Simulated scan of single mutants.
Amino acid sequence: MADNKNGREAQARNEERRQRERAIAEELERADEPEPPVDSTELASFETELDTLEFPASAATVVDAVGDYEIKSAEGTHTVANLLPDAAVESFDSPAEVRTRVQRPTVAGAMKRIVKAADRYQSASFGASQRDGYERTFRALQAIDADDDDEGIRAIADWIIEHIHENETLPGSRDVRRRASEFCRSNGYSVRNDDWLGI
């Protein structure tokens, strides 16, 4: 495309279209997942608490501002500080992104532990797609059996943290999926080949 006003506008429109397509694809992938355990009205009131912050904001900034805010879920009550890492390496582009992060407290808690462990090593930094892969794996583990006290999420988070401490790097998201798949199969949960964990 030509580097003029029309060309730049066309590039911007194409980028917006690609973002919408990615968002739609993600929503379709999540259609099979169980509903998040936090009520949407609870999250809406939490999001209004975030209006005082300027975005993008680091997780440390969010925790500093609203860390004591309590979010009620089917799993119990959690403070924002329990769900988000007090770390500058994690950042959010909007209040909606923070809201999405805390809507699944078990997954958020596991990710907090991983980010804190990775924050200790310069070489263990997250890319957006890697983080999304980890979260998607945790959501898949949560969907396997809602009555198992999220043992799979804890086991895989422990494995990731151990890997970080031993290697000072994060394992690849494919390795995390493979480990989660092995966990499921060794504990009697069936994983289809066309599932996220069917690796």
Rank of each mutant, 00 (worst) to 15 (best):
D86F: 11
A87N: 08
A87T: 09
E90P: 01
D93W: 00
D93K: 08
S94A: 10
P95G: 01
V98K: 01
R99V: 01
R99D: 04
T100A: 06
R101I: 07
V102W: 00
Q103W: 15
R104I: 00
P105N: 11
T106V: 15
A110H: 02
M111T: 12
R113G: 10
R113F: 03
I114C: 03
V115F: 09
V115I: 06
V115N: 01
A117D: 00
A117V: 06
A117H: 06
A117F: 00
R120K: 08
Y121T: 10
S123N: 00
A124G: 07
S125Y: 10
G127S: 15
S129V: 06
D132W: 09
G133T: 15
G133C: 08
E135R: 15
T137G: 09
F138Y: 11
F138E: 00
F138M: 04
R139W: 05
Q142F: 01
I144G: 10
I144H: 08
D145N: 13
D145T: 12
A146H: 09
A146E: 07
D148Q: 00
D148C: 03
D150V: 00
G152I: 10
I153A: 12
R154K: 15
I156L: 08
W159A: 13
W159S: 00
E162R: 04
N167D: 14
N167R: 15
T169K: 12
G172E: 07
S173N: 13
D175I: 09
R179P: 07
S181I: 14
E182H: 08
F183V: 08
F183H: 07
